Amino acid sequence: MINGYQPPTTENWQGRIDGTGPACQRWHQVMQLLDLNETITADLAGAFVLLGFACDEGVRRNQGRPGAAAGPGSIRTVLRNLPVHHTAQVMLYDAGNIICENDDLEMAQEQLAAAVNAILEKKGFPVVLGGGHEVAYGHFKGIRRSRRNNDITGIINFDAHFDLREPGVSGANSGTGFYQIANDLQEQGALFAYLPVGLQQISNTLQLFETAGALGVKYIEAAAMYDLNLPSLEQQVQAFLNHVDEVYLTIDLDVFAAAYAPGVSAVAFNGITPGYCFLSLLQQIFQSGKLVSFDIAELNPGFDKDQRTARLAAELIFRLVCTIDASQ
């Protein structure tokens, strides 16, 4: 039994209908509901399972602007009317939301871990909709529960921030997730394989760069994310992919410039653009054959404009589904 859980509802999947034939369908017409507190009888092999993490307690503790708890609903609002471009063999499920009750972030992360693990145990592909970037710690714990310690689960994080801060007196927050993961893996005797992409010097203290160095973390700064530098970037990403057994990909929407992602917890006026360079690296990861789970973090609908940020999040999920479908 997963506590702090909201099962999926059909109300989230109502939308425009252009017809019932395969060429006319939209996501709301093919989406199936999956209650994780019931026995999972569906065959989830090859299925993408949406799971909301309706929590921004980590953002609040991190002194950011709250509101990301409404992120999953905002993303679903865009997703439901997307056209179906994947094949009929690909199944889409909505598994509802994990919520944070009584400001208990740690419990919410534990419940997220249980839900992610349940999906993976049934061979599904989790697509977690945040929520603050505290989603990363619970998400990764869920992936690791069914893995052996000698399996290397690599993390690629598109983010303006390292999120490698040590938890303080108020506990864990949206900026401590990867530090917590590093500590857990060290206790398990497992390797911490972490590649942050899109970092901003203006968004990270020197101590965070020192922490990254002490942990052996290589990184790609936002300033390096331009088209002429793509061959070098692809080499760096491929070297990381070659070193790991599987990959968990997380995208913090604050990695993008404010014009593209105004609705985030910590806006970046000069972040990266979701253009050729970024999309090429994303495609490289999608097509690697090693991606096992994915999430999007920090969508804050209260600050969004014309659903720009939600639409960007939805397009990334759309690309994920279509790319992996095409490569199978």
Rank of each mutant, 00 (worst) to 15 (best):
L44A: 00
A42P: 00
Q29Y: 07
P83L: 15
D94N: 05
P66Q: 06
G73N: 09
L51F: 02
A68F: 09
G64Y: 04
N62M: 04
D18E: 15
V90S: 08
A54T: 10
G52A: 02
G73T: 02
T77W: 12
G96T: 04
Q63K: 09
L92C: 10
L33T: 04
I75Q: 07
Q14L: 15
G67L: 09
I99Q: 03
G21M: 15
R16L: 15
Q89F: 09
R65Q: 08
P72N: 11
S74N: 05
G19L: 11
F48N: 00
N81I: 15
G46D: 01
D18S: 15
A68K: 12
P66L: 10
H86E: 14
A23T: 14
A68Q: 11
A54I: 03
D56G: 04
E57N: 03
P72K: 10
N97K: 05
R26C: 08
T39S: 02
R76T: 10
R65M: 07
R26F: 11
R80N: 12
Q29P: 04
G15P: 09
G73P: 05
Q29F: 09
T20Q: 08
Q29D: 06
C24Y: 14
P22N: 13
E57F: 07
A70Y: 14
L44W: 04
N62H: 04
C24W: 13
R26S: 08
